Simulated assay, not measured.
Amino acid sequence: MHARTVAVTTTALMAALLTPASHARTDVGDDRPAVIAHRGASAYAPENTLAAVDKAAELGIRWVENDVQRTRDGELVVLHDDSLRRTTDVEEVYPDRAPWLVKDFTAAEIARLDAGSWFGSAYAGARVPTLEQYVERVERHDQKLLLEIKNPELYPGIEQQTLKVLSNEGWLDRHHVTGRLVVQSFSAQSVRNVHKLKPAVRTGFLGTPPVSDLPAYAEFTDQINPSYGTLSLGYVSSVHAFTGPHGKPLQVSTWTVDDAETARRVAGYGVDGIITNKPDVVRDALRGKDAGGE
């Protein structure tokens, strides 16, 4: 662990537990905490599409989150499930290719699919974007990206490939890696791989590891990003007591919070980011909380 001993001292941990939530670091974003549009503004537009990025921008949301998987011919596409079935018309277009896994289709085949009609007729014809297309749209809106490498065990080498795409798109310069990009995964090994390949890139681990394991995580990740149902003030404070690989306290971005009451509660724990399908609801709840405290 950087700038810390392997074990957190009792004094440091107690100090963290006594630190008011309002003193949590907020460099994950411009807001306190940052509001992160989950799969784009996915309550209002089909998830992980360019339309969902556009909707987040329309709502004034700076951070968007997405999921990356790989096609049979090696193209990176933005999709949450490892199957195309739920969010596209793949069953109609390719009825004989069950279970319709992303890894069994070429990029050209996936580009034919309608990824919007399932959500509503207004989005008929929306496509599954490639990672290049998605990053270009985020850049157009001057937004920030929390990128999740999905199911890395299915796609050997996807970390290096993802970083290559980001580099080609200009997202690995100092401006992006210090303030506009975080790469996360549920796989600790995948996060380690990203950190090893490109140490400048900030990373996040999706989950709630025991406090006793945090020294090991602090070697390779900048964020611990748990489900909101697993959080407490004590846990968030404990995470904040550790220093990550870039010399700053570990951060916490929690998911998936879609109502005002929960948003206010986890903000009170001192989280650094809130991942949400309804970023306007969370943002307005936090603003109301701030206004009420003035």
Rank of each mutant, 00 (worst) to 15 (best):
K144E: 13
L146V: 02
E109I: 09
D30C: 00
L146M: 14
S232W: 02
E91D: 10
W255K: 04
A124K: 15
G74D: 06
A16Q: 13
P199N: 13
S190L: 07
A51Y: 05
L131H: 09
A41T: 08
V211K: 12
A108P: 03
V78P: 12
L197I: 07
L131K: 13
Q184K: 09
T256S: 06
Q223N: 14
G116W: 11
L18A: 15
D81A: 08
K150T: 12
A111V: 09
G120K: 06
Y155A: 13
A52K: 03
G157N: 07
D67Y: 04
S121W: 09
G207R: 06
E159N: 01
A52G: 02
H141N: 08
V182I: 15
K150G: 13
W255V: 07
N225Y: 01
L181F: 04
L59F: 14
I149V: 15
E169Q: 15
G60Q: 01
R4C: 14
G60S: 09
V8R: 12
A52Y: 04
A263E: 00
T26L: 03
G292W: 02
P226R: 00
P215Y: 10
V68R: 05
V271I: 02
A285F: 06
L76Y: 10
V53D: 02
E294Y: 12
L231H: 06
V282R: 08
L181T: 05
V281H: 07
V282Q: 04
G60W: 00
S253C: 08
K248A: 10
G29M: 01
I224P: 03
P199C: 10
